[in-house]
Design a protein around this nucleic acid. Structure first.
Lengths: 226, 226
DNA sequence: AATTTTTTAGACACACTTGTCCAATTCGTC
DNA sequence: GACGAATTGGACAAGTGTGTCTAAAAAATT
């Protein structure tokens, strides 16, 4: 009885490479095939690992699934918050800066691997693991919305925007940014850089038509004066 | 000629009740469990039918799945076009009329059974059946967008809206209308009437802030003058 | 180099599903 | 009531997937 005394946490040491390799492969397979359709043998092959190793690391198929979602959630949230830090708090050109931010948001958070996978897994298996996805929601999207809303409130206070409800504004901003990518997402396709840029530009233009202060609007039309 | 001479199309007569019952049950189960996880025995039970009958009617699991999606597509499209016909072409109160339309759209098309199921199935299995969902897209969403865009163009021409690209406008309208329901949808929950109404009101307000003609905007603030 | 730990490949039991076949039964229609 | 078609329940073969176990091989640690 020398083997892993604490089987629930993790084996002794740093063979973490296999660990993440398994999680990555499992994420891909779960997404492609769904939970029921996912085959552990296939996951093992795709991870370059024997099936037994998968069981050694994560025990159960269900356990593995949970680990995958947790991992994706963490990565995704980290990405979002990192991008959120690049929000244009002191914009030079509000429209351009917001558009650039929207592009970053799309590229780094919504269109990347984690974003795609997480979205699909939530859609497919969310109802089966309410507590798991509640966790994702409470740690992730809710906080993200709040953070984004705070940024918009700040812009409004600085005189760049005219908004009533920052939370609503944040939701609508995200909705507009995604408006044109929805169809792509529906089929698991990834939009091109150019499509993302165009979508962001369209979204921000409409957003500012609704919420931009007059001076900003005017300045936008008359280009730069100084 | 009562016997089914053409076994591929449909048996002779009106035991269609079982047929639709099977399709309905299959839709629910496919949605809950995914294609791979769906159990034909369970579908049979849920349809109040013996397993053999399921096979008699649709032959294959794959066949059954295709039939389900086709059926959902048709129903969903029919619902959308019916709702589209209630678009306020000659609005008395643009904001109120558009909001009411948005509510109808949500209730009859996006939040109902067909909408929910179809969305989930497309997300989950869309990549596995490209031609099936291409069909849905070409017959459904594409035409819907065009139709909605045409309505907005008409409103613009009549002086109610100020828009550049009707197609884009239509997409953004839909995006805004859904903005607040996304989270609910993510977990398969169905928004309440009240939530739908509020979401629609918020969406239309922002929409009109962006695209409403000045007179409409002004009238909105000063309430009714006559 | 020796020892401990992890990984591997394969075999294995077990459960579950699909799809078919068939005899008995029910249903609808005449 | 009789007839034919549809439905049923149950048994069945074949395939597949999970999770366990084992002994041998590989890796890492000392």
């Amino acid at each position: 009885m020398k083997a892993h005394a604490s089987p629930d946490t993790f084996p002794p040491r740093g063979h973490t490479a296999k660990r993440v390799s398994i999680i990555d492969a499992a994420g891909a397979v779960f997404c492609r095939e769904g939970f029921a359709g996912a085959n552990i043998d296939l996951i093992a092959v795709e991870a370059g690992v024997s099936r037994q190793t998968v069981y050694n690391h994560h025990g159960d198929k269900e356990n593995l699934f949970v680990a995958v979602v947790r991992d994706l959630s963490e990565q995704s949230n980290a990405g979002v918050f990192a991008t959120l830090a690049t929000f244009p708090d002191h914009p030079k050109d509000l429209e351009a800066d917001l558009a650039a931010f929207a592009v970053r948001l799309n590229c780094n958070c919504l269109c990347n691997r984690e974003g795609k996978f997480l979205r699909k897994l939530i859609q497919a298996e969310g109802e089966r693991y309410p507590e798991l996805f509640a966790e994702w929601r409470d740690e992730g999207s809710t906080k993200i919305w709040s953070a984004l809303a705070a940024r918009f409130a700040r812009l409004a206070y600085a005189g760049f925007l005219d908004i009533d409800d920052p939370d609503l504004t944040a939701r609508q901003f995200l909705a507009l940014v995604n408006a044109e990518l929805q169809t792509k997402f529906m089929f698991g396709q990834t939009p091109t850089e150019a499509e993302i840029r165009k979508a962001a530009a369209n979204a921000v233009r409409t957003f500012l038509r609704a919420f931009g202060k007059q001076p900003a609007k005017a300045r936008r039309r008359e280009t730069i004066e100084a």
